[in-house]
């Protein structure tokens, strides 16, 4: 599998790992910067649009993606508010809540549509949604997820494994 956005030329296990963290807040970026090893270089995007713009100019090894985006302005949500509202009989409020709750999936779809084939690790627990996970993985691999209770160590291990090609799902 090719990873056009991935860095080249560093073979050490301890080589630096550039992670694009896509979240609407700053909890991940603060926590991960605090607790992840120094070799992880973390760059934050606050929305899908920002993420796509960053991917145009910078190289990353792996994407760490939140699912819920309830702190971005509605106009920044990917997915088309009015289009989604049609599914809810014109109810813009429900459409907005749906987009916020599932924005991570919309961002992922946009990444793949933009020819980004980096591994994406969701920060969302799919343990209780096995069918949904199977549907997403079938369409958007390489894909992974970490549950909400994953600590920084686990996050570090998984991101590193994907960045270094050690992860197979």
């Amino acid at each position: 599998m090719t990873h056009p956005h991935r860095q080249q030329g560093q073979d050490s296990v301890e080589r630096s790992v550039r992670v694009l963290v896509i979240e609407d807040g700053e909890e991940y970026i603060r926590n991960l910067r605090r607790f992840l090893p120094a070799r992880f270089e973390l760059v934050r995007a606050g929305s899908g649009g920002e993420a796509l713009a960053l991917l145009e100019d910078q190289l990353f090894d792996v994407v760490f993606l939140d699912m819920r985006f309830d702190r971005v302005p509605p106009e920044a949500l990917l997915g088309g508010l009015e289009q989604v509202a049609n599914r809810f009989n014109g109810d813009l409020d429900r459409a907005q809540r749906f987009l916020e709750d599932n924005q991570g999936a919309y961002v992922l779809a946009a990444l793949r549509d933009g020819a980004c084939s980096l591994p994406v690790v969701f920060s969302h627990d799919f343990t209780n949604e096995p069918r949904r996970w199977a549907n997403l993985e079938a369409r958007y691999a390489p894909l992974d997820y970490l549950a909400d209770n994953a600590g920084p160590e686990e996050v570090s291990e998984r991101l590193g494994a994907w960045a270094e090609g050690r992860c197979v799902r």
Partner: peptide, 18 residues
């Protein structure tokens, strides 16, 4: 789950290590 455990108490193990 999302606002108490996630981002917060899930750091406790790492804090112990540090």
């Amino acid at each position: 789950r999302h606002e108490v455990l996630k981002h917060n108490t899930n750091l406790l193990g790492s804090v112990a290590d540090r």
